[in-house]
Design a protein around this nucleic acid. Sequence first.
RNA 1: GCCCAUAUAGUGUAGUACGGUUAGCAUUAGGGACUGUCACUCCUUCGACCCGGGUUCAACUCCCGGUGUGGGCGCCA
Length: 446
Amino acid sequence: MVKQKTMSNEEMDGWRKTHYTKDITKDLVDKEVILGGWVRNYRDLGGLRFITLQDVYGERQITLKKGIVSDEVFEKAKVGYQYCLMVKGTVKGFEKAPGGIEIIPKEIKILNKTPEKLPIDVTGETSTELDLRLNNRALDLRSVRNQAIFAIRGEILNSARSFLLGNDFKEIYTPKIIGSATEGGTELFPIMYFDREAFLTQSAQLYKEQLSGVYERVFEVGPSFRAEKSHTKRHLCEIVQLDMEMAFADMNDVLKILEELVQNVIIGVRDKQMSALKLLGMENKTIVPEIPFPRYTYEELIDLLNAKLNLKIEWGEDLSTKANRKLGQEIPGYYYITHWPMAIKPFYIMPSKNPRFSESFDLQKGWLELSSGGTRVHNKVQLVEALENKGLNPIAFESHLRTFDFGMPPHAGFGLGIARWLTVLCGLDDIREAVMYPRTPERLTP
RNA sequence: GCCCAUAUAGUGUAGUACGGUUAGCAUUAGGGACUGUCACUCCUUCGACCCGGGUUCAACUCCCGGUGUGGGCGCCA
């Protein structure tokens, strides 16, 4: 194993951070500040040493000139990558310093050290494989790239919330531990609930429908679990979804709200996180889309794929990976695919006037499906029939069905995968990069 | 779940094409020089052939199996 350096760690004592790196501006020149963070870079020029100290918001240069700082502080400044430090010092303007400003330390506390060899490259000299980075994620997340990705994620949620709250939506929370059998579709993770079998929820669908009959417009940001052994760069076993449901509305109302939400969020991200977008090279790619988004029907696109793009897709089939990729080449932006065959949609989706079709849609960005939704069935008799048609047992849905005796309004909604969208907005190659601690069939730690 | 590829210092790679060398480079890490760097620079030292079996005088190299990883497909309200 690697040997630890011998000096012992210090305590904070009475020290508290007075500022983040982003707060160090020219207004603070000659003021004393206390910063805390991690060593992003260290350069030793002999009588002159530089520490680049990073914190959650960015970085700032700590400059140690022999004769200017005390010998004790100068000696202590021999630090390694990602050491955890607190620095008490004076802010100085200096043209050659990054940002034109630097900190001249009076005192340094080394709160924690790192091994001589870190398990992943934090210098930016080489790019460590994603799998290895994920094994050491808490360290990996300190990189500027990851700081940018998750700053954008934060702004997506912030903008989405303020958009929805501003449109009379109420934030809800629905249970993730459920007792009933599957609604069909994806596999569930079974768990023990005391002495009974229970499951982790695959979506908030049924509960958000119920609550649309109470609060009319509801949304939730919450986890869903899918026990599929999918090996792709766009599937995870644990995902966070933005779920929305609105009463007295149908699919067309949802299409309109969703495209407005997408547009508003991208405006918010560009407004608040432009530097993060630039760092990821996305400032000219993640641009504000025009609305309304193009709307294509399932049937139109099947015809397009078969006629123009040389595929052989039977009417009624779901779109394969290959078909989606072809579509993405043809239509690179945001667009809707509406009126999917009823046969491949879940029981709660409203059939169209022609019952082979359904009042359902997917929101696509290029080849990737970001969201799906539609008008729901609100009539109990019709819903029971739909369950039976799908081979599901209405008795297993008794408590859900009861809701429909209480004056359930017509309603519609969507669910949108946050990580998939973040992947698109940040130009990432793999959905695991868009999640702090991704869960895949192989990965259960960290 | 299926098919294909791949595995070399902490990290990222070269190479063994045709089996035999001191396994090369960059960075990290240790030592040294350097008072305005910003991927500092320079000198120096340490550090590696995934695991198991087989073929062979000899395997990091060839073969088989395993495992990990990557890619594609499938699964996927």
